[in-house]
């Protein structure tokens, strides 16, 4: 590229071509179609799913199928279970990761760098592969078939600590800290009254992602939860599917009912999630 010697006039931003909108439209359609199809089958019945050419319009059978979903498995209870677990993990991660991130970002203590390196390393280990001993430990604690078995392990998020540390490093400058110390604030007060409020948006986004991940988690609840009243909504969907005499309409209804709460929440906080991903993008 040749460099310009004279300052180029500020050109107006390029007009967006129509094929850009076409491409994006296709992307959106692809993203949303499976959900739409789920909705169609959930509001009609299995026979619709087996019709060729495929039916693409929703029907009015939703209430009947929804009712069946709620009677086949304790679905309402499973929604509550999922909510409890996801909120606890979301809030828990937001607070705990902010705490630890603050410590790594702004506090001086021995082995700080080594310990942080350890945290970063654990990000690469998929703890899923140790499910068998994890199950043995949980059962020796007597936590099989409980919600705390899902919540407590989910509170440790190495990525969350990494993320909060990034944000705290940039948001909190050292002069502010020093001034606070001179004023006699102790560490907790600095965290709770200065640091945390500054990164509340970031913590909120972290909590959101923690919530979504916990809501959609499958393997661990599948192993640990046994009685249907303790199911999270993901396991409840699976239970609908593994009925010997499967009814696809039922399974899709359940799937749809399990997705709707997240969709509703997404309408309100989706923008935050989008900016959360984009703010935290890997910067070289």
């Amino acid at each position: 590229m040749t460099s310009k010697t004279r300052r180029s006039r500020r050109r107006p931003a390029e007009r967006v071509r129509w094929w850009t909108y076409l491409g994006l439209g296709l992307a959106v359609a692809a993203s949303l179609f499976p959900l739409y199809w789920m909705f169609v089958v959930a509001t009609t019945d299995s026979a619709t799913a087996y019709k060729l050419p495929p039916a693409v319009l929703p029907g009015g059978n939703f209430l009947h199928l929804a009712d069946l979903v709620f009677t086949t498995v304790p679905f309402l209870r499973s929604l509550a279970n999922s909510l409890i677990v996801a909120v606890c993990i979301g809030v828990g991660q937001a607070v705990l990761c902010a705490l630890a991130g603050f410590a790594f970002a702004k506090l001086r203590f021995r082995f700080r760098n080594t310990l942080f390196l350890f945290v970063v390393l654990t990000m690469t280990v998929p703890t899923q592969l140790a499910v068998i001993p994890q199950y043995l430990i949980i059962s020796s604690l007597g936590w099989v078939d409980t919600l705390q078995a899902l919540i407590v392990p989910g509170l440790a998020s190495a990525f969350g600590i990494f993320w909060m540390r990034q944000h705290l490093s940039t948001a909190l400058n050292d002069e502010l800290l020093q001034a606070a110390r001179i004023d006699g604030a102790n560490t907790w007060q600095i965290f709770w009254r200065i640091a945390f409020p500054l990164v509340r948006p970031a913590a909120f986004v972290l909590g959101l992602f923690g919530f979504v991940t916990a809501w959609n988690d499958f393997l661990w609840p599948f192993i640990v939860l046994k009685s249907p009243e303790m199911y999270t909504v993901q396991i409840a969907i699976k239970a609908l599917q593994s009925n010997r005499d499967i009814d696809l309409g039922l399974a899709m209804s359940g799937s749809f009912l399990a997705t709707v709460p997240l969709l509703v929440i997404f309408v309100f906080v989706g923008r935050r999630m989008v900016s959360g991903i984009m703010d935290g993008a890997f910067k070289g």
């Binding site: 279970n81 409890i84 606890c88 828990g92 919600l147 303790m230």
Partner: peptide, 14 residues
């Protein structure tokens, strides 16, 4: 958080 933890503890095990 406190409410939910209490709920979850109370609701464990069916």
């Amino acid at each position: 958080v406190v409410t939910l933890l209490a709920l979850s503890a109370g609701c464990s095990g069916g």
